[in-house]
Design a protein around this nucleic acid. Structure first.
Length: 581
RNA sequence: GCACCGGUAGCUCAGCUGGAUAGAGCACCUGACUUCGAAUCAGGUGGUCGGGGGUUCGAAUCCCUCUCGGUGCGCCA
């Protein structure tokens, strides 16, 4: 039951009646009509812009049109009063029974309330994190991980079949360098002196890898001249790194369905296959790129290379697929990877990138359009960078220098629930300033506690009600007489509850999970406020001695609040705890 | 030079594909617990929505332009 869309349909059908009566010209564009909550509740509970939107095409002044619409609308069984205001807004209030019906519906539906089947079992692939397996995940990856995971939860809950996928960059020079770094640590474990090499990763986490290599292989792989040995070390090290990453992700509450490895794309000939396909489509040619104008690269050499015509598909320039030594660029296996995704026949392909890859989006969209021959549209969501502060000062992070805050650090010091919620209190394309110290110390300011506390409070009220032998299961509540809910605060919170389906809809259709977090915060606020009323005026308490009907009605209300808080927190991957410590 | 993202209260940020007098948290000031959890609540102070044009009944929102900040721009991934 979505009150807003029901009312919108009612408004539209009123317009259609007026069209039929030839009071309005037929065929008016009704797509801009909206039902919304006025900023100021004194205007009314809901309002519509219908008369302003249609006035021009209908050739009638907005307020006159509003009057004609109101004449019909005021007879509606849901609408208790109407008024016309401002430039032509139609404001109206609904009968209380409508809001009470809503509460009952929430109690009937439980946590699935508000989730429509938008997806209709369409297959979605959502690729995120995809960090290079050269070290542990850091805060930047964390943001993408949370964003992707919650988006996946959302899509899953509205009827999409979601695959969470991680692309492992386990090929290329970085991985070679990782293998050499691991080899150095392996030697160190075997008693040789460790000399920091400029081209190697300095992080301490590789010490463990060295130890494990020693335990696994003894001294067998000591000679790095033997290429097979280096390959073995590479394979083993990548596996350990991926295992670490999987563990960190699972501690964060993120579980991938699928891992695709870059090296397997080479092995299976998929890179060549994808490039062949592009060649067949006539989208590869030999050409020379201009040097970027502001770039201060002194080593720039103009040369002819194999280019993909990405500018045909909205990119600024064409992109090279081969390096000077004839090997593939980073772009080439990505082409193959996305070709593979296209062939796996997903209805939607979504990539979550960090902002440092923003320059990459145009060419990736281009490749998907090209290889799907215009049928698929890659959706890319960018997560802006996370700026980390400690004691109010920015923390400089460098993988090379080995100084960075890992996901593990975050989870240890801040905790999963706080990290997830705090990261979602920012929309994805705004940069995120995260003060480590603040997140740990000032837990009172942390919105996740605020929302969890609301749930905990509701839990204790329900517990108390139970101890008073009041039947409070949802079925009983939903079939009880709830007409005693009548104060302005109560009705106002019911109106808030009615927004939940809309919040979900916008979060899904615009890929903006932060809306859920903000909504939960607002809902919790209304609840805390409602509960506090009972402190001043005891007749406003939830459990009223001697008035069982009122008590049950109020329990039904707070239980429906709780259902939505729990449902929302689950989407965010945050624990709806029953008791605060 | 070009591309993408941002600029909203002292600070951190929302603003629902154009709606009415621009919101929240923190900070600051004033109040509220012998009762269902004070990790809470009520009230107050605080704004040139970066600047300037345009589109229209109506702009923080859409278009143009300028400006500041972030990120990126073949032979790294």
């Amino acid at each position: 039951m979505e009150i807003l869309s029901i009312l919108k349909n009612k408004v539209i059908s009123v317009v259609e009646i007026l069209e039929k009566q030839e009071i309005l010209p037929s065929g008016l564009n009704k797509s801009l009509i909206t039902i919304e909550k006025p900023k100021d509740e004194s205007f009314g509970e809901l309002s519509t812009n219908v008369s302003m939107v249609l006035a021009k095409d209908a050739g009638i002044r907005p307020r006159d049109l509003a009057a004609k619409i109101v004449d019909i609308l005021k007879e509606d069984e849901m609408i208790s009063s109407t008024s016309i205001a401002g430039p032509g807004f139609i404001n109206f209030r609904l009968y209380k029974k409508i809001w009470i019906k809503l509460v009952k519906k929430i109690l009937e539906d439980g946590e699935k309330f508000g989730f429509k089947n938008i997806g209709e079992n369409k297959k979605v692939n959502i690729e995120f994190v995809s960090a290079n397996p050269t070290g542990p995940l850091h805060v930047g990856h964390t943001r993408g991980a949370i964003f992707g995971d919650v988006l996946a939860n959302l899509l899953n809950n509205v009827g999409f079949v979601v695959t969470r996928e991680y692309y492992i960059n386990d090929a290329g020079t970085q991985i070679d360098s990782l293998a050499r770094s691991a080899h150095s640590r392996y030697q160190e474990a075997l008693g040789k002196e460790y000399n920091a090499n400029e081209n190697e990763y300095p992080g301490d986490y590789l010490k463990t890898v060295g130890q494990k290599l020693k335990e696994e292989f003894g001294e067998k792989l000591i000679s790095i001249r033997d290429n097979n040995n280096l390959e073995k070390i590479k394979e083993y090290t990548v596996k350990i790194m991926i295992d670490e990453i999987k563990k960190d992700l699972s501690d964060l509450g993120v579980f991938m369905d699928s891992f695709v490895s870059e090296s397997s794309l080479y092995k299976d000939g998929k890179v060549q296959e994808a490039i062949d396909q592009l060649t067949r489509l006539g989208l590869i040619y030999k050409g020379v790129l201009e040097k970027p104008k502001g770039s201060e690269d002194p080593d720039w050499v103009e040369r002819e290379q194999d280019l993909f015509k990405s500018s045909m598909f909205g990119d600024d320039i064409d992109r090279p697929i081969k390096k000077i030594d004839g090997s593939w660029t980073y772009f080439a296996p990505d082409i193959a990877y996305h070709y593979d995704k296209i062939k796996r026949d997903y209805d939607e392909i979504i990539d979550i990138f960090g902002a440092d890859h923003s320059g990459y989006t145009a060419r990736m969209k281009a490749i998907v359009k090209a290889l799907s021959e215009g049928k698929k549209d890659l959706k890319i969501k960018l997560c802006q960078l996370v700026k980390l502060y400690k004691d109010g000062k920015p923390v400089k992070m460098s993988k090379r220098a080995g100084t960075y805050i890992t996901l593990g650090d975050l989870l240890n010091e801040v905790g999963k629930d706080s990290v997830r919620f705090l990261f979602l209190m920012r929309k994805n394309d705004a940069p995120l300033d995260f003060d480590f110290t603040k997140a740990i110390e000032q837990t009172k300011d942390n919105p996740v506690f605020y929302v969890q506390y609301a749930n905990a409070r509701i839990c204790s009220i329900l517990k108390r009600a139970k101890s008073l032998n009041i039947k409070i299961n949802d079925e009983v509540l939903s079939t009880s007489d709830l007409n005693k809910l009548s104060t302005e605060s109560e009705v106002s919170i019911m109106r808030k509850l009615s927004e939940w389906p809309n919040v979900i809809f916008f979060s899904v259709s615009r890929y903006e999970p932060h809306r859920i977090a903000f909504y939960l915060n607002e809902l919790a606020q209304l609840f805390h406020s409602l509960q506090s009323l009972g402190k001043i005026d005891h007749s406003m308490k939830f459990l009223i001695e001697g008035d069982i009907q009122l008590t049950i009605a109020r329990i039904a209300l707070i239980r429906s609040i709780q259902i939505i808080i729990i449902s929302g927190l689950k989407i965010l991957g945050v624990n709806p705890i029953d008791e605060m410590l």
